[in-house]
Design a protein around this nucleic acid. Structure first.
Lengths: 343, 343
DNA sequence: TTTAGCACTCCCTAACTTCGAGTGCTAATT
DNA sequence: AATTAGCACTCGAAGTTAGGGAGTGCTAAA
């Protein structure tokens, strides 16, 4: 791949891509030849463009239109041509300001982050909340709601709260509840939520519990309160995609909005982004999602220490301002990592 | 108003409105004259239509198109012509099924309700969560997160949870926290959240607290954890409005989606709906919101006993299937009232 | 190897035409 | 007096045609 293209071809390809990113119009040989840096006649450029088309980097909508970059071209651009600029100082400021104004609540931080990503990139921002199961158990609390209904509140080390209403077989007294909580808090403290379940099962076998109906009940209840919830996805600035000329088509737009509403389909893709830390870029069909045709996704993982917590990023047309968006996503991920850190 | 229109005019107006609701196309005299029940020639109908136009009930997009109902016509239709059918048995089933599958968590119930409203009506569903302040205090809990950070968890009688991270001046010990919680729980139990603040202020003056720094601290902390949050709005099925031909215009659509994203603008309107219990209908400009041009809102309040908890409804084009949607909204509100009831 | 020249392609736009649905008026009908 | 048939007229939607322009690919000259 490296030496398939001469230096000149690369320059021309880059010029075409960058022009197309700005204008969203097919780029003609004239335009490229005028582009500063290059001093070639349109005719020469045309020859090169024909070659690039043959190689699958360009496509022409019809004979007498200019050329349009293909997914393959964007991929090559991102891998080999693009030099990611440093993030602009004002952007940095803006990101910091927006993220911190959400306060300390993790949910709020993430929601605000998705909005911020969208407004800075002018595309759509997306943030996946940390898998609850990655957090460490800090505290459980049962609160009587009335009758046999109980509210179980589960708190993790970073202050995330999950609560669930559960029904008990028999009415429980305050003192019993306190005892149950104490027991569970002692038992589970510091355990990753993902491992709590097995711990509970193991404990159920133990001598101590076998002869104590209350403790057994406690274990059963906490198991119930752990029932998984799918990870939350925050999507900000959906309306921004309405600005993109490539989605002016109504049918296309409906598809996209339905996809945003469901979120489930996207989650599979985002999960894949979490498998390896750092920046991921999916261009067009690479996402293997029909809804993502013509769209690109740039994500970065955010971490706590060495653990990947979640992933955030930007969805936009394949014709996306990669050079600008990549550093934004990258910096945001770093910042969010720091904000969610437990100190 | 009542006798402004003859019986026949009303029938014709009704026929036009109902036809327009289905087709979204200007209705011509031919179509009306063919509509069963009426046996009049197109010419006669035309005369009546001209009168109705003069009175402001109809408008013609241009000379040789049919007539289109005005906001005034819809208002008259809703007030005087429409007889709200009973809700269809299958719809009733569907609503019950969808609402109950969300389990017992209030947040989940409301989110699912908004989705259900949209899929049944084919418009956009909207649910405003109960004002937190209307709930009764049940329990407060402080959990140490590390350092001087504390997680305050506030639970109300119906199982709604609000949590907030707060910073303390000095590090607190477990025993202190327990004492603070006990004190507060005893003090505030059963009080409406809206009144907690004044109670706290009053208590601060009391003898007991003046000489107990810990209790004073407790009061201060609980005050912090009460800081208001704007009521949550769940919007389901936004994409449905893309199906409405009247919003095919891109600019219009952008406006609407932005409004949905902000939610704040809508809240003012929805708050107004909560002022009186029961069903409210805003047609087009009646909402006094520029974003709502061409749209109608049908809402109903949901209650707990005699207290209005919140409001839910459907947003769609003014050309909305009122006869079908009104009973859906009404029934849903009743059901949600029952689901959120504390038993 | 690069470039100028040129014929050719194909879309876009605007102007023009046609067609049909619908109107309002008038005169005939009930 | 109310209703209806008849008819000329209006106006937008859809289809057609023609011109213009942007861009291409090829060939031959520099």
């Amino acid at each position: 791949m490296r030496d398939l293209l001469t230096e000149r071809s690369k320059q021309i390809l880059e010029a075409i891509i960058e022009d197309y990113i700005v204008t969203a119009e097919p780029v003609g040989s004239r335009t490229v030849s005028r582009s500063h840096g290059l001093s070639l006649s349109p005719a020469t450029v045309r020859n090169v463009m024909a070659d690039l088309e043959e190689l699958g980097f360009l496509a022409s909508p019809h004979t007498s239109a200019g050329r349009v970059p293909t997914d393959k071209a964007y991929r090559f651009y991102v891998d080999s041509l693009l030099e990611v600029r440093n993030i602009a100082r004002e952007e940095q400021e803006e990101i910091r300001k927006r993220c911190s104004l959400a306060g300390r609540d993790p949910g709020e931080v993430l929601r605000e982050t998705s909005r911020m990503l969208s407004s800075l990139s002018h595309y759509t921002g997306i943030v996946v909340a940390p898998r609850f199961t990655a957090n460490l158990f800090r505290h459980i609390e049962f609160i009587k709601l009335g009758g046999r209904r109980l509210l179980a509140i589960l708190v993790t080390h970073n202050g995330t709260v999950q609560n669930k209403v559960i029904e008990t077989d028999e009415e429980l007294h305050g003192a019993d509840l306190t005892r149950m909580c104490n027991y569970l808090n002692h038992l589970l403290r510091g355990l990753p939520i993902g491992r709590v379940k097995e711990k509970l099962l193991a404990e159920m076998q133990s001598e101590k519990v076998r002869y104590d109906a209350l403790l057994a009940q406690a274990l059963r209840l906490s198991q119930e309160s752990l029932s998984e919830t799918s990870s939350e996805v925050f999507i900000g600035g959906q309306a921004n995609i309405l600005e993109q000329p490539e989605f002016a088509d109504l049918t296309r737009m409906k598809e996209i909005f339905r996809a945003f509403e469901e979120k489930g389909r996207l989650l599979g893709l985002l999960d894949r982004c979490m498998e390896a830390e750092g920046i991921h870029i999916y261009i067009g069909a690479e996402a293997h999602l029909s809804e993502m045709a013509g769209m690109s996704l740039i994500t970065a993982t955010y971490m706590s220490g060495k653990d990947t917590l979640g992933v955030l990023g930007v969805i936009g047309p394949t014709r996306m301002g990669y050079a600008k968006v990549i550093p934004i996503v990258d910096y945001t991920a770093q910042l969010v990592s720091r904000l969610l850190e437990v100190d």
